[in-house]
């Protein structure tokens, strides 16, 4: 599981690559926790290369969403595949996020 962060104009783009299962989520948790410092900005979670998400991955997204709400920021999930979209739908989290 890899995550890369880039600052573009007024947005922060976080690109995920690989499987966000329990080990993957543990791997990226420190980076995502550090990123909550900037959760007051518009953060785009780019899931183009994300192939799988588990409960641990959902928790990473939810923690970041909560930090963003507290800091007045905005989280946009971009380019999720149908399988991951269905996971968001089945767990009821779909309309919690802005998904593009």
């Amino acid at each position: 599981m890899e995550v890369s962060v880039s600052h573009e104009k007024n947005e922060i783009i976080v690109r995920f690559s690989g499987r966000m299962d329990t080990p993957g989520a543990q791997e990226i948790a420190p980076q995502m926790n550090a990123l909550t410092e900037e959760a007051g900005k518009t953060v785009i979670l780019d899931c183009t290369d994300l192939t799988y998400i588990s409960s641990s991955g959902l928790r990473i997204f939810l923690t970041f969403h909560k930090a963003s709400l507290e800091k007045g920021g905005k989280v946009i999930i971009r380019n999720i595949c149908n399988e991951i979209r269905n996971v968001f739908m089945m767990t009821g989290f779909l309309n919690l996020f802005e998904i593009q």
Partner: peptide, 17 residues
């Protein structure tokens, strides 16, 4: 839906949905 997965987190909106 959930029985085929190991998803152990859900929103309270699953019920009304």
């Amino acid at each position: 839906q959930m029985g085929l997965t190991d998803l152990d987190i859900m929103a309270s909106s699953v019920g009304p949905q």
